[in-house]
């Protein structure tokens, strides 16, 4: 039977009927992911215990990966999950395990920026950037390609090959340097 004739049959949903629901679902999932990002960020920057802050940071990064997916970049979303959630959060968790004193000593008097003044600083930065974003007319250029993964690979190894090599050098030096710094004074 022709799919166009299905629509009047009871209980049969065609693609046309579903398209409205699909748009609604896409919008709702986007709102959920934005909420995950913002709540994770709030936990990451304000939780008293650092372990909770790292968990909030992981939630924030997962939300950001979904936002990259909404920005037509599934490859960058996968990289975000692998590098940030899988590596950076684990590294910070190791830092907490290795370098947090066992006895919870009382902190001294708070610094000048730790109270409302810090909140005002952050709010000034945030609202300044929001005002800048809303009051600027951004010039939209027509797209010259689709931004597919294959194009990223070709660009990475042709136009940006120098930066690509340099970034691998930076990573190698960072690994060796962190090993050297971490080993120094180990017998203490």
């Amino acid at each position: 039977m022709n799919p166009a004739e299905w629509s009047w049959l009871p209980g049969v949903l065609t693609a046309n009927d579903l398209s409205g629901y699909a748009d609604t679902a896409v919008g709702i999932i986007f709102l959920i992911m934005v909420a995950t990002t913002v709540i994770g960020g709030i936990i990451a920057c304000s939780a008293e215990r650092l372990v909770r802050a790292v968990a909030g940071l992981a939630a924030c990064f997962i939300g950001v990966a979904a936002i990259y997916y909404y920005l037509n970049s599934p490859f960058v979303a996968i990289m975000q999950m692998l590098i940030y959630v899988g590596a950076v959060c684990i590294v910070i968790a190791f830092a907490i395990m290795l370098a947090t004193p066992e006895d919870n000593k009382k902190p001294g008097p708070p610094g000048p920026l730790s109270g409302p003044l810090g909140l005002i600083t952050a709010a000034l930065a945030t609202f300044g950037m929001i005002g800048l974003a809303l009051n600027t007319m951004f010039k939209v250029h027509p797209k010259i390609n689709m931004g597919a993964v294959k194009t990223i690979g070709v660009e990475l190894l042709t136009t940006h090959s120098m930066v690509f090599e340099l970034i691998s050098m930076v990573l190698l030096i960072a690994i060796i340097g962190s090993l050297v710094i971490g080993r120094h004074g180990r017998s203490k």
């Binding site: 990002t37 990451a44 920057c45 650092l50 610094g111 600083t121 952050a122 945030t126 950037m129």
Partner: peptide, 24 residues
Amino acid sequence: YLILAAVLFGMGIYGLVTRRTLVG
């Protein structure tokens, strides 16, 4: 997206000026 990025940046600034440990 620009507003979301600005909010995340503000949270980062807030954490940077209020945290009292290097890991934070």
